[in-house]
Design a protein around this nucleic acid. Structure first.
Length: 572
RNA sequence: GCGUCUGUAGCUCAGCGGAUUAGAGCAUCGGUCUACGGAACCGAGGGUCGGGGGUUCGAAUCCCUCCAGACGCACCA
């Protein structure tokens, strides 16, 4: 079924095209009526005629009679009020559509999403929460839209720190090390290694020698390295499952994966004639990038010691993703500070001919997580905040709130629900603000059952489902004789029809908060309706209509939340 | 110094070049109640949209400039 907005837009566009091809009708939801088209004024200007006159002419030409009533208002706005018949048609289509108006892509695209990316033998902290949760939402949404999603967890599993990590593992003994790591106490392990490295000259020497062995492919060293990596991945997987994120160990394609490709990167950049030597390093100079002295800023592909930096790895990754994996879109869900790095890597990749313009490549940048003091979120002792700790704390708080209420739920059920609500709280809080801004992490606010929170949305959904439990029979969605006499019901219906727009905006802008805002607005429309329009005590067509609105609301909330990675429980 | 991002109500945030009152949520104050789950709903107060210019019929939104903050700017990733 064509979405309501699209249907209107197509018809309007036809009218606008006749006066000036391609003129944007600027169709928007309106607070005065259902929709408004603001494009007349702009159009009038380009063709040099008075706006009201243009509006009159458009009105005469527009073929909208079966959809809406149109009125000219103010300087030349077109106010569009959907006809009851059109609304009814759209709603009945929606009722019958399991996808709630969202078509699956006819030509699926391959969308590669690079997200999460924790470091081996290092704790996952709040920064990883953002990447993981945003990436998961984009992955779920794209899958639902029918695209082929390739998730890539670009784990930090290579580089100089591994010398010291492996030596520390040897010092501890494998069994003890494995035990520490499997307990998820990665920070202790990493810090201990780092402390020795900084304090003990002999240890530092061993570490350096070990890096050489690792890079040289020494069997025993590789075995120890794999042990570190596999232990860490197992731990990350626990965190993902706790968060209910879809990443799996198969999605882990760490930095080491690109290692064998790095020599070719250098060779081929040189062959393309864009590589040059600078201070002993192999670099690419790209127009438009300069350092703090105003001199050209290079992208360092190979260091003067012949080692490779992350620029080389990222170049190899772009190349692999385009040419081997055939990605049409590549989305990097990585913190905002990396913006310049990615700009440079992509510019170099384009210059080398590895990144055609047809590939959409985007840095889905996000801001920092701040503490209540608006500084980087840290524990009282100044260390970074463990991600699992946050989930656990949120779960405890949710449980405390559930326990404070009367309920016949078993302890087990309550425990499960608390985890669901904790995830909802954490994810919704993270996703509901514009992602490139820093945001203040406030666990009390996000876990609150009232306000613009995940738990509130879950509650709205659970309350609807309870109506259907009371119904006493299985509800089967079916066509309805719509009247929508009550304004709250009509507002809800319009909200339900706008779901495809919300999703489209989210995928276009890569801003999950657009979908959050929509869902919260929908939940509010529902509760207003719920107050004003008794469902079960109504009769005949009216009852049918209200049940259908409830059903659609629950389905939209549930689907919308699921695309954000949030489960909406049946009851709470 | 250069660059990127940010500045909207007491707090946390939306806001798509549009229409006398710039919206939510929290907090504050006041209502609704034999209630299909009050974890709700309805309402009020609270803002010269960082300052100043400009473009436009029309600017929180676009441009310039200044102020404030965050981050980045050659061999860590």
């Amino acid at each position: 079924m064509p979405a309501t907005y699209d249907t209107l837009l197509r018809r309007l566009q036809a009218g606008f095209d006749r006066l000036s091809p391609g003129a944007d009708p600027v169709l928007r939801p309106s607070d005065r009526t259902d929709y408004q088209a603001n494009g007349v004024m702009g159009l009038a200007k380009t063709i040099g005629r008075p706006p009201r006159e243009v509006a009159e002419e458009l009105l005469g030409q527009l073929d909208l009679a079966d959809l809406a009533e149109v009125e000219i208002a103010g300087p030349g706005f077109l106010n569009i009020t959907l006809t009851p018949a059109f609304l009814a048609r759209q709603l009945n289509d929606l009722v019958a559509d399991a996808r709630l108006g969202i078509a699956a892509a006819e030509a699926p695209r391959t969308v590669l999403i690079d997200y999460s990316a924790p470091n081996v033998a290092k704790e996952m902290h709040v920064g990883h929460l953002r990447s993981t949760v945003i990436g998961d939402a984009l992955a779920r949404t794209n899958r639902f839209l029918g695209n082929r999603v390739i998730a890539r967890n670009h784990v930090g599993d290579w580089g100089t720190p591994f010398g010291m990590l492996i030596e520390h593992l040897i010092d501890l003994g494998e069994d003890a090390a494995v035990q520490t790591l499997s307990m998820g106490d990665l920070d202790t392990f990493y810090r201990a290694a780092r402390t020795k490295f900084d304090a003990d000259e002999h240890f530092k020497e061993r570490s350096r020698a070990r890096v050489v062995l690792l890079q040289g492919g020494d069997d025993e060293t590789r075995r120890l390295w794999r042990l570190l990596v596999s232990q860490s991945i197992a731990y990350f997987q626990e965190v993902y499952e706790k968060l209910d994120v879809l990443l799996t160990p198969e999605d882990v394609v760490g930095e080491s994966f690109y290692n064998p490709m790095l020599d070719d990167v250098v060779t081929d950049l040189a062959a393309a004639g864009i590589l040059e030597e600078s201070d002993g390093a192999q670099v690419v100079f790209l127009p438009g990038f300069s350092n703090r002295d105003g001199e050209p800023l290079p992208l360092i592909v190979q260091k003067s010691d012949e080692g490779f930096g992350y620029a080389a790895t990222d170049l190899a990754a772009v190349r692999d993703r385009v040419s081997v994996l055939g990605a049409h879109e590549i989305l990097y869900v990585v913190g905002a500070p990396q913006a310049q790095h990615f700009d440079m890597v992509w510019a170099a990749a384009r210059a080398a001919g590895w990144l055609p313009d047809s590939v959409r490549i985007e840095h889905v940048a996000f801001g920092n997580v701040l503490g209540p003091d608006r500084k980087m979120f840290k524990t009282r002792s100044g260390t970074t905040v463990k991600l699992v700790g946050l989930i656990d704390e949120a779960t405890e708080r949710a449980l405390a709130q559930l326990n404070a209420r009367e309920s016949d739920m078993s302890d087990e059920e309550r425990q499960r629900l608390a985890l669901d609500l904790a995830r909802a709280a954490l994810k919704y809080a993270d996703l509901s603000t514009e992602r490139q801004k820093d945001y203040v992490f406030d666990i009390d606010r996000m876990i609150a059952f009232e306000g613009d929170t995940g738990p509130y949305l879950a509650y709205a959904h659970a309350r609807i489902r309870s109506i259907f439990r009371r119904l006493g029979e299985t509800y089967v969605a079916h066509e309805v004789n719509w009247s929508l006499g009550d304004s709250a019901a009509r507002q809800l219906a319009l909200g339900l029809l706008a779901f495809p727009e919300a999703l489209e905006v989210m995928t276009k802008t890569l801003q999950p908060h657009r979908l959050c805002t929509y869902l919260f607005d929908l939940a509010q429309r529902f509760t207003s309706f719920y107050e004003a329009c008794p469902v079960l005590s109504a009769e005949g067509d009216l009852r049918d209509e209200r049940l259908a609105l409830c059903d659609l609301s629950a389905r939209t909330l549930s689907l919308g939340l699921s695309l954000l990675g949030i489960n909406a429980p049946e009851r709470m």
